[in-house]
Structures are given as C-alpha cells and as structure tokens.
Amino acid sequence: MIQYPRFTPGTTIGVTAPSSGIPVELHFLLQQASERMTREGFKMRIGKTPWLQNKAKSAPANVRALELTDLLRDNAVGLIFPPWGGELLVEILEHLDFDTFPVKWVLGYSDVSVLLLSITLRTGIATAHGTNLADVRGEYSDETTAAWHAALSTPSGRSFEQRSSPFYQKEWTHDKPSPCVFHLNEPTEWKTVSGGPTTFQGRLLGGCVDVIRHLIGTPYGDVATFRRKHTEGSAIVWYLENCDLNAVDLRRSLVQMRLAGWFDGCSGILFGRSGANRPFDDYAEIDVYEDLARELNVPIVFDIDCGHVPPQMTFINGAYAEIEVSVDGKGLVKQTFLP
C-alpha cells in the first residue's frame, strides 16, 4: 500500500540540504527562492545546512540527518524542499530512522533522488521527483516546472496529467538572467526506441542513475520487497536521468540494475534528456537504449522532461502512471494516487 502526503495551501516549507548546501557567493539564490515562495503564500523554515558548503557537502552526515529529521517531525512543515542536489547524500541514509518517518512530501532531484527512492522503497510513502527550490526563484515558472504544486496537491485516489513541454533548455546561461530561470528555446520531442507510438503503465520508481545505482545491494534499494509489500507485485515504470555518465558507464549501471533484479516486472522505461551520454568507441546513447530494450523486451522512451536538462515534470514515486507517446513526439503522463 502506498501512502500519499497531504499538501495544503499556505503550509510551511522546510528547507534543508541533505546533500550540498549553497556557497556564500550564491546565497542570493536561496534568498530569492524563499521570497518567491513567501509571495505565493507559503511560510518558510530554513535550516542551517542550506547556507553551508565544505568538502562536497553542506555538513557532516549526522548533522544533515538530524536537521532533516527535525523538519520531518515538525507538524507545521508540510513539504521538505532542498535547495538542490549535490554529491554525497548517500552518507546520511544510515543516520535516518525510516521506521518513524511521517507521511510528508519531499521534493527534489539529482542527488536528492537517493533520499526520495530510499524513502519510498523502505516505507511505501510517496515522494516527488521534480524541481528543486533554487529553480523556482524566478518571477514566474514555465508550465512544466510549475506543475509540482498541482502534483503535490492531488488528493489520494485522484489523478493529474502532465504533457510534454513545448520547448527545453539546451544549455545553462547563468550570465543571462531572466524573469523565468530557464531559457526554453529548443523544441521538445519525446522519442521511442521502436520509432513509433507507445503506451504502457505501472507504478513509478526512479531518479538519477549516477547516484541511485549505489543503493543496489543495500537496505535502501530493496525493490523486490517494495513490490511485494507495497504494490502487490504490480508492474514498475522506471523514469531515469543521467547527470554525468558517458554511454558505457550508463550501460554498466543499467546492466547492474538488471542483474540486481530492479527491472523485474518492468513494463517500460522513461529516460530524461541528458547533456552527458558521451559516446565511447562509437558506442552511443541510442545503442544503450536499444540494447536494454532487446534485453527487457519493453518499450523505452527517451529525451523526456526529466533531469538536468530542464524543464522537468514531477514524477511521484509509488503513483500509478499511464504513459502515452504519439508519433509526433508528444507525451502524456497520467498519474493516479492509488493506495
């Protein structure tokens, strides 16, 4: 059984940095994001860790874990919203008591997906893979990014739909700030390995391949037990995105996931756009997807709105998803908050 948190207007947003904090010269990003959320009617509770950064982390693992736990236990806080990802969130997992986690939304992506996937697999509590706090600091957000609010506000048993974005941002242009954080100017096209339209459905699980692969073989990456205990063995739709892996490292990671049983019962896979995926000895991104499609005999969609090439949809770990991709490269994702 999946448990879905409730998200109410005007709730308090708890900001902590379970991975990387923000260096001093970029503190204005957090200040702008906090002001934006306040204007939208939210209250803000910002911990100490978001303002800190040293040696690839915001603070020692036990400090990060304690601050996260305090915000989770604060009944006034309705959403945990880290400023962004980072590198070493995996360090805090052993310091968290998953058995006492309240049913509360946690939203983010990149390294934060380690926490999101761990929470859902260990507890059956739904978590939200979507924008991070720093990326909603603009005067307004594009429609795809802004959908995080509607997604988290969906009542249990109800559905929400998201369509593929019209345009995406190919490169970051931090030297050209604008009222909207992203500069969306490249036409979006969702692609399939088969080259044709496709549909599939199942329970969503996923995150950033670079980091969630390190959950394999640990108490925090037991997909088989999650399926048996929380979804009665229903099919899984994986959504995956790649931050830094070249084609062969991505391939190795996916083979490891397959050998570990993570793709057992998989009905289809969604891959986000990536600026990585560099070819190696003529072995390219499309080769990775084609090899995996042959091995699993499931539809594979790529270049979707997910990950480090914005904008990105909000995917709810544990929700039941129905995926449709048309021949013209348009995508539809319907997520239903089924128990």
Rank of each mutant, 00 (worst) to 15 (best):
V90F: 14
E87I: 03
I46Q: 03
M44R: 02
V24T: 14
R73L: 03
D74C: 10
N62K: 12
G85R: 01
T100L: 13
V24I: 11
T49N: 06
P83N: 14
F101D: 08
L93P: 01
R73P: 00
M44A: 04
E91A: 03
A65K: 09
R64E: 09
A65W: 11
L71N: 08
P60M: 10
P82C: 12
L89R: 01
G21V: 06
L68P: 14
P23V: 03
L30R: 10
N75T: 08
H27G: 15
G78S: 13
L68Q: 08
V24E: 15
F98I: 11
K43P: 00
K43C: 02
F28H: 12
T49V: 03
I46D: 06
H27T: 14
D99V: 06
G41W: 15
L29K: 11
L30G: 14
G78I: 11
K57W: 03
R36N: 15
P60H: 09
W51K: 04
E25P: 06
N75L: 07
F42D: 02
G78K: 10
V77S: 01
T49W: 00
K57Y: 03
L68K: 05
I46K: 02
P23F: 06
E25F: 12
M37N: 15
A61P: 01
R45L: 15
D70R: 11
I80C: 02
W51Q: 03
R39K: 14
P102D: 04
A65L: 06
V77P: 00
A33F: 05
N62Y: 09
P83T: 15
L30D: 06
L79R: 12
D97H: 13
D70S: 04
P102N: 12
A65D: 13
A56E: 14
P50W: 03
L88Q: 05
A61Q: 06
A76Y: 11
L29I: 13
A33W: 04
K48T: 03
G41V: 13
K48N: 05
L68Y: 06
S58M: 03
L72S: 05
F28T: 10
